[in-house]
């Protein structure tokens, strides 16, 4: 059986380590890369190196940023009385895309799962406490996931911040906006009914 030259196999292997990419997709990407000019390849590789060198965590909210302080924390027009706790920076960008939230964020860096070696010490809880002590927040919204680990992370945060003078709220769960009831699965609907509010 004849295989690709080793240098190509290597790149295919790297690509297939990315989420959502299997061998076939990686193979297609590599074929495309081979067609590119050396200049293009240089700037592609350069972009990746530059990204890795410049991106760091915001010293305030732990989000990813290319400056010491991220764009949200640096923005003086944001509401500084409310903070939203998320697991990952990508959750923050997801909420930002909605555009309706104007407060600050705090990125925890994951969710509690001792089974996978992630305890409170592996997440940015102490940084969160400092962040809250240094600001005048009146409310924190816990926007971790709705799975068991995300739920545990929220409960833990609530216990951690209980003694502080801050309102703690949890995001609602239920039927996706713009979808009809019968499209939601039964567990989502149950959650929606449990979390109903007065009209």
């Amino acid at each position: 059986m004849n295989q690709y030259p080793v240098s190509i196999q290597k790149v295919i292997k790297w690509f297939s380590r990315l989420p959502g990419i299997g061998y076939k997709s990686a193979e297609r990407m590599v074929t495309k890369l081979l067609e590119m000019s050396s200049d293009e390849i240089d700037s592609f590789a350069g972009a990746m190196i530059e990204m890795k060198q410049n991106i760091r965590n915001c010293s305030e909210c732990n989000a990813i940023s290319d400056h010491k302080i991220c764009a949200v924390c640096a923005d003086s027009s944001r509401d500084r009385t409310i903070v939203c706790l998320v697991e990952q920076a990508k959750d923050m960008f997801a909420i930002e895309r909605g555009g309706g939230y104007n407060g600050l964020y705090f990125v925890l860096g994951g969710k509690l799962s001792p089974l996978n070696g992630i305890g409170p010490d592996q997440l940015a809880f102490s940084m969160l406490e400092t962040f809250i002590d240094n600001n005048n927040f009146t409310e924190i919204i816990l926007a971790t996931g709705s799975d068991v680990e995300g739920e545990a992370t929220s409960v833990y945060t609530q216990r951690l911040l209980k003694s502080k003078d801050i309102k703690i709220s949890r995001i609602a769960y239920g039927v996706p906006v713009g979808s009809s009831i019968d499209f939601a699965d039964e567990m989502t609907l149950l959650r929606a009914i449990e979390g109903r509010r007065q009209y």
């Binding site: 509690l112 305890g119 680990e149 545990a152 216990r159």
Partner: peptide, 25 residues
């Protein structure tokens, strides 16, 4: 939840808040 809590109970340093978290669940 039980698996996670058992893992915490077996660790050397026990975070009581974490146990309380799992107890709540």
């Amino acid at each position: 939840v039980i698996k996670q809590k058992n893992k915490v109970l077996k660790s050397q340093y026990i975070d009581k808040k974490l146990i309380e978290t799992y107890n709540q669940q």
